[in-house]
Design a binder for these strands. Structure first.
Lengths: 230, 230
DNA sequence: TCCAAAATTAGAGTAGATGAAAATTTGGTG
DNA sequence: CACCAAATTTTCATCTACTCTAATTTTGGA
């Protein structure tokens, strides 16, 4: 009773389309595959494809769309006394250790990333998804802090933390795509993550301040200065 | 000798196309105007339009594309002893005072913003431009700090500061679009900008940390705590 | 068995974009 | 001035994503 034959067939059809699409995309790149080809491969009409997926990009993003709301969830479920940054850092480092795909650390994340970076359309779609994540996180932060609508801090914190993880993820992806071994990448990313979240928590400070002396090369000033909390 | 007749005509044609396009977009919205209409209005063929502008979006962004590199320039030309954040804050506040369009504070920026927010295609194009700005700023920061390619701090700082200004600008635009008077918006934005750049410089800290007491509402802790520098 | 709703398909059309080959315009030269 | 070669524009043809409407088929249940 839970799911009639009709519902099941629909789900199967949708899945078949998505699978065939992904297969073709992997083999030949997103832009080099037409929706018509996907339809043929899935043995349906083009209209049926667009019936299940609003755009061609959705064929690719289908699953990853579920990750969209996750940072917001992490914040909502954080422990008492845990700061927003602490919660998100914990989540990020956990994903790093377990090589979870929610931050692009999964095993096949490199081909995924290459597919995206090779296609302007997909890149654009990923950006939109990123904005959606920001919005969701900002809303969660507004709830969490009871901020009034004109307080921009939820939006600022949301964009800062999500762009931080985005930069970290992108860097990891770049190195994975270059064929580097995860045994080397993982620890490096962790190190960079500590720095990155440090910048977030304790601020950028006088990063890049020009002084007479040559302390510019790797400013240890702000990033490394532990001046508050924990 | 500086500019032959040929060059001048090209420039004029390009300008005529862009002007006609902008006029139509303003009047009827970006998505409701076809390239064919723009071509007819400018009295050229569709292919000529695409000869001058790679995409329809470029018809709209033409000029604003020049703003793309500006934050990077500001950093490159900052004074000795001035930190990156300080330089960009100075530039931002200056634009705020003078209502300069480079941060969307110009007089017609609201219609511009409305046009963008009403069109998914334009919104997407703006996001791409934002990423390009980030890349340019990150490169400038890499130069400025002599960072090696695997140091992510330039990228982190770049994305944080540019997204900060983006949030501030977006908020101003929203209120301008709502018809609010600049006399009210301007000072508010300045106030929010102080908070925002403060978060950047001194860090998010334990923003949103849940404690037993009810100090969550507007956490004065991190944002307001002057714990380092200047 | 048959009906009504749901799912799929067919068909026509729009818009952005690309490519190549004609046609026109332009700058310079004999 | 006449003419050539290069640059510019136009014309024409084509592709692809996507939309809409009207058949057509499939399905669940009476």
């Amino acid at each position: 009773m839970d799911e009639g034959l009709r519902e099941r067939k629909k789900r199967e059809t949708r899945q078949r389309i998505a699978d065939m699409a992904m297969g073709l995309f992997m083999a030949r790149g997103f832009d080099n595959v037409t929706v018509a080809e996907v339809a043929r491969a899935a043995d349906v009409s083009v209209n049926t494809v667009f019936n299940y997926f609003k755009t061609k990009e959705d064929l690719f993003l289908d699953r990853s769309a579920m990750v969209e709301v996750m940072p917001a969830e992490v914040v909502r479920e954080r422990a008492t006394g845990e700061s927003v940054i602490a919660a998100l850092r914990r989540d990020f480092l956990d994903a790093l250790d377990t090589r979870h795909w929610r931050y692009g650390f999964g095993d096949g994340s490199d081909v995924f990333a290459k597919l995206v970076s090779d296609s302007p359309a997909l890149t654009s779609a990923m950006l939109q998804m990123h904005m959606e994540r920001e919005r969701a996180l900002a809303e969660a932060l507004m709830e969490a802090t009871d901020a009034d609508p004109d307080d921009l801090r939820p939006w600022l914190v949301a964009t800062q933390v999500l762009n931080t993880t985005r930069v970290l993820t992108a860097h990891a992806a770049r190195r994975m795509m270059a064929g580097e071994d995860w045994a080397r990448i993982g620890p490096d990313i962790r190190e960079q993550a500590e720095i990155a979240f440090g910048l977030l928590e304790r601020g950028v400070g006088d990063y890049g301040a020009r002084s007479g002396a040559g302390q510019d090369e790797k400013p240890p000033s702000s990033a490394a200065r532990p001046n508050s909390s924990t």
